[in-house]
């Protein structure tokens, strides 16, 4: 009897592992999520020196659109701040319909998951949002 219960437990764990491996649990960004707001149009703000504890957290970045492109089949918006700092936003797939309305020079607020900083700041799973949130 005990052996049967143990086998059932093992089977349950295997099913759990298989199921969790088959799902993609990448964090998706919700437009209504409350997060850290970084306005790179404020010349006193430096996103390059962003708190590293925010990596893998959702942030909101506000700045000017420098470039919209689909290099590598990824929709990307590059945002520029007043200190010439750039934020590379890799957009969520569901944002594609909104991209045609975005133009270079527009002021834009984008929410996404902070990945880290090289020369520029990299943000993934981005959604276009309202800066006043």
């Amino acid at each position: 009897m005990n052996r049967l219960i143990s086998l059932k437990r093992i089977a349950y764990i295997i099913i759990l592992i298989v199921f969790s491996c088959s799902e993609n649990h990448d964090k998706m960004v919700n437009e209504n999520e409350a997060i850290q707001h970084i306005n790179i149009l404020d010349e006193n703000t430096s996103i390059r020196n962003i708190d590293q504890s925010l990596i893998d957290e959702v942030i909101l970045v506000e700045g000017l659109v420098k470039n919209v492109n689909s290099l590598n089949n990824r929709n990307t918006i590059i945002i520029k701040g007043t200190n010439n700092e750039l934020v590379i936003c890799d957009m969520q797939k569901n944002q594609e319909p909104k991209l045609n309305a975005i133009h270079v020079g527009d002021t834009l607020a984008i929410k996404g998951i902070l990945v880290g900083t090289l020369k520029d700041v990299i943000v993934h799973n981005c959604v276009i949002t309202d800066a006043d949130e």
Binding site: N72, I88, D90, V115, G116, L118
Partner: peptide, 25 residues
């Protein structure tokens, strides 16, 4: 796996190339 935000700089003064990438990207 794919990283689409890899930084690279080429300097034609000495034909050197540098690449840097974030692993969690």
């Amino acid at each position: 796996a794919e990283n689409n935000q890899v930084l690279s700089i080429i300097d034609f003064n000495n034909n050197s190339i540098a690449v840097s990438m974030l692993m969690n990207a």
